[in-house]
Amino acid sequence: MHRFAKPSVFLKLTGAMMPWVVALTVILTAAGLYLALIGSPVDYQQGNTVRIMYIHVPAAWMGLFCYVGMALCGAMSLIWKHPLADICARATAPVGATFTALTLITGSLWGEPMWGTWWVWDARLTSMLILLFLYLGYIALVNAFDDPERGSKAGSALALVGAINVPIVKFSVDWWNTLHQPASVARMGGPTIDPSMLAPLLIMAFAFTGYYFIVLVLRVRLELNQRRIRALQLSGLFDERPVASGDHDELAYDQGHNAGASK
């Protein structure tokens, strides 16, 4: 269809790139995990629990990164009406939601030994939680329509509205938090981080990014192929009616693109 014209470029390009990206991601993940779990020093205060950081922090970055990506896709779909933008936004949402959920879960697991509680209404945690709600709202919206294209378009509009709101939400949560800051909670240290810890952190972040691109490409390819199948179904190719029973045009007409007329 018309919308496939450019997607085919996408399919070809990503098809060629895929093996390299996969290989790179596997290497990065292996290296990152080795450094994070074995190769990096134990924190003098936190002990081995510090190793949660190597999952937690990159996941948090990815959670935000994916939302920014979605909003950009939404903007592209709004401005250039490019169908791939909608599909990309739609494919990104579950990945971003998973990373955000992972951040919250690992944060909770980390917080228990460190702060003695599973959850605190810390500004960062709360913002992440709201981000997760925004993801869930988006996913619920795009799946709520019978026409997938309509769902994607509505989703793109929502992603943009959400993106305008994210800084406001972040700001208001920070403001709210400084007012209600519980005294006992110490925040994680600032930018002072040892290079031996920074290296695995960055490697893990790149590995996560690679993983995201792999999943994104797979999901977009899946969606494109599903659209093709639907198009073929609508065109009447998969009709099981015996051809001999009527003339071919009639069959294509009724079973094909004109079946199920709407407005």
Partner: peptide, 15 residues
């Protein structure tokens, strides 16, 4: 659905 979409956006007003 509308509550899921709108409530997170209401948070700043609430705060």
């Amino acid at each position: 659905l509308v509550s899921l979409l709108v409530l997170p956006l209401y948070i700043p007003v609430l705060i």
